[in-house]
Simulated scan of single mutants.
Amino acid sequence: MTQEGVKYPSVYTVDSYRTAPPPLPPRPGRRRPIGATQVLLLLLVTVALCGMVVEAWLIYRLYNPPPAQTTEEMSSAAKMIGNAPAIGPAPTKWARLVEAPSKPVAHLTDGTDVANAKHVMAWSEIADPLLYKVGYKNGSLVFKENGYYYIYSKVSFLADQGWHHSIELKTKYYLGKNSIKLLTSRPSLHSKQSNSFLAGVLHFYKDDAIFVKVSDTSHVARGDPTQNVFGAYMI
Rank of each mutant, 00 (worst) to 15 (best):
168 E>L: 08
136 Y>V: 04
227 Q>M: 12
23 P>D: 06
190 H>Q: 11
147 G>V: 04
70 T>M: 04
88 G>Q: 08
121 M>W: 06
142 V>F: 02
9 P>C: 04
82 G>R: 14
32 R>G: 12
222 R>Y: 08
88 G>I: 05
180 I>N: 11
161 Q>R: 15
79 K>D: 06
43 L>D: 01
78 A>S: 07
146 N>S: 15
170 K>E: 04
94 W>R: 13
66 P>R: 07
143 F>P: 02
18 R>N: 11
113 D>K: 00
41 L>C: 15
205 Y>T: 05
231 G>D: 03
19 T>W: 05
89 P>F: 05
20 A>N: 14
110 D>R: 05
59 I>F: 14
56 A>N: 15
195 N>Q: 07
202 L>D: 00
91 P>Y: 04
188 S>W: 10
182 L>E: 00
22 P>C: 10
103 K>G: 10
201 V>M: 05
129 P>F: 03
173 Y>P: 03
157 F>A: 06
200 G>R: 00
112 T>A: 05
136 Y>F: 08
220 V>K: 02
200 G>Y: 00
196 S>M: 00
228 N>S: 04
195 N>M: 04
39 V>P: 08
16 S>P: 09
94 W>K: 07
148 Y>W: 12
52 M>P: 01
7 K>A: 13
100 A>G: 10
197 F>Y: 10
134 V>H: 01
16 S>V: 13
179 S>H: 08
84 A>T: 15
58 L>C: 15
202 L>H: 00
67 P>K: 15
24 L>D: 12
72 E>S: 06
231 G>Y: 05
119 H>V: 07
217 T>D: 02
98 V>E: 03
136 Y>Q: 02
212 V>Y: 01
59 I>W: 14
166 S>D: 03
170 K>C: 06
125 E>A: 06
17 Y>T: 10
121 M>E: 07
150 Y>C: 06
143 F>R: 01
226 T>W: 04
71 T>K: 14
160 D>E: 15
67 P>C: 09
127 A>I: 02
206 K>A: 08
220 V>D: 00
84 A>W: 14
33 P>H: 11
112 T>D: 09
82 G>L: 11
142 V>H: 02
86 A>Y: 11
212 V>T: 05
30 R>A: 14
184 T>I: 13
220 V>L: 02
138 N>G: 13
19 T>F: 09
173 Y>L: 15
5 G>D: 09
159 A>G: 08
205 Y>K: 10
